[in-house]
């Protein structure tokens, strides 16, 4: 099977016809939850490493308030949300709930002394443990969305080990960009190392995305059909325009200019471009997910 082979089916118009079927279960609310989780945890982790207290607080709130609210708004039975934590032995969603819980507790113990001046009575071994747990849980939140999606064998386009890696690099990029914006808004000088990290992550993301698309264009028909939707079909404007042009090219060019021009507004525009690309990528990944057609098996 090669990328140039014609696709044997079209998108099925209804559930009684054979064809590719679009995934419609996970919608913009799940996209928002994934997005808030990635950029919030990314911002928290980058800020923890660079010692930026405001970034840690903003990242913490994005995850604890933004991500969790989006998840609760999505659930059919939000009052039973606690049940989602019951099967960490098999479900990536359950593992994500545990990581988010650990993040909420450990992040709180880190932020409380910084902003309220209250030192929590943590035992001696607890002092270095809190930042370690917060960093580890933030790291997990940054990439576990990719594992949740990868765990669905039904949608071939998501079934790649590259997806969690892509989520991780995008989350780190979102965190770095937001951290740079917050530093600029506070009137400080952005760390050159963080600026370089942002540039390299943009290049790495473009490279990873290209490999991902190329790999999928050579797999089974459902994955190839998704590639077609992204590059030539229904989502080409969102993917090519917002993900690639705005989220990557414009972000890279503007962030390179940022090194020469001191403008707060420019930092906001760079962050906005990156976040638009990040959110759009998650949404097109969710919306372009296709199920393989069910066809009568030949016995011999």
């Amino acid at each position: 099977m090669s990328a140039t082979d014609p696709l044997p089916y079209a998108i099925a118009p209804h559930r009684f016809a054979v064809g590719f079927t679009r995934q419609t279960w996970w919608n913009w609310r799940i996209g928002a939850a994934f997005f808030f989780g990635e950029i919030g945890a990314g911002l928290f982790l980058v800020s923890l490493v660079t010692g930026q207290a405001l970034g840690m607080a903003v990242g913490y709130l994005i995850v604890v308030v933004g991500k969790n609210t989006a998840h609760l708004l999505y659930l059919g039975r939000p009052a039973r949300f606690w049940r989602a934590a019951l099967r960490p032995d098999r479900s990536w969603i359950a593992r994500g709930i545990w990581a988010t819980g650990l993040f909420a507790i450990s992040g709180f113990t880190l932020l409380l002394p910084k902003f309220a001046g209250i030192e929590l009575p943590i035992a001696g071994w607890g002092q270095p443990l809190a930042p370690a747990v917060a960093a580890a849980s933030a790291l997990f939140i940054m990439f576990y969305d990719g594992l949740v999606m990868k765990a669905s064998p039904a949608i071939p386009f998501w079934n790649s080990a590259l997806l969690p890696v892509l989520c991780l690099t995008y989350a780190t990029l979102g965190g770095a960009t937001l951290s740079l914006m917050l530093t600029t808004l506070q009137g400080g000088m952005p760390p050159p190392a963080l600026e370089r990290l942002e540039h390299w992550l943009l290049v790495a993301n473009a490279w990873l995305l290209a490999i991902y698309i190329l790999r999928m264009s050579r797999l089974e028909p459902a994955a190839r059909q998704t590639v077609h939707l992204l590059l030539r079909g229904r989502y080409r404007r969102a993917f090519l325009g917002l993900v690639l042009l705005v989220g990557m090219v414009a972000t890279l060019l503007l962030s390179l200019a940022q090194g020469h021009v001191e403008a707060t507004a420019l930092a906001v525009v760079v962050a906005a471009c990156e976040l638009v690309g990040d959110f759009t990528l998650l949404m097109v990944l969710l919306k372009s997910g296709l199920y393989s057609p069910q066809t009568a098996p030949r016995s011999h």
């Binding site: 079927t21 059919g76 669905s152």
Partner: peptide, 23 residues
């Protein structure tokens, strides 16, 4: 009684044989 309506099962089913009861 245990279902929280996350629809992960529907996404994971290759045969598209799960149904969600919208409000």
């Amino acid at each position: 009684e245990k279902c929280i309506g996350c629809r992960a099962c529907a996404v994971a089913c290759p045969y598209m044989n799960r149904h969600f009861l919208e409000r």
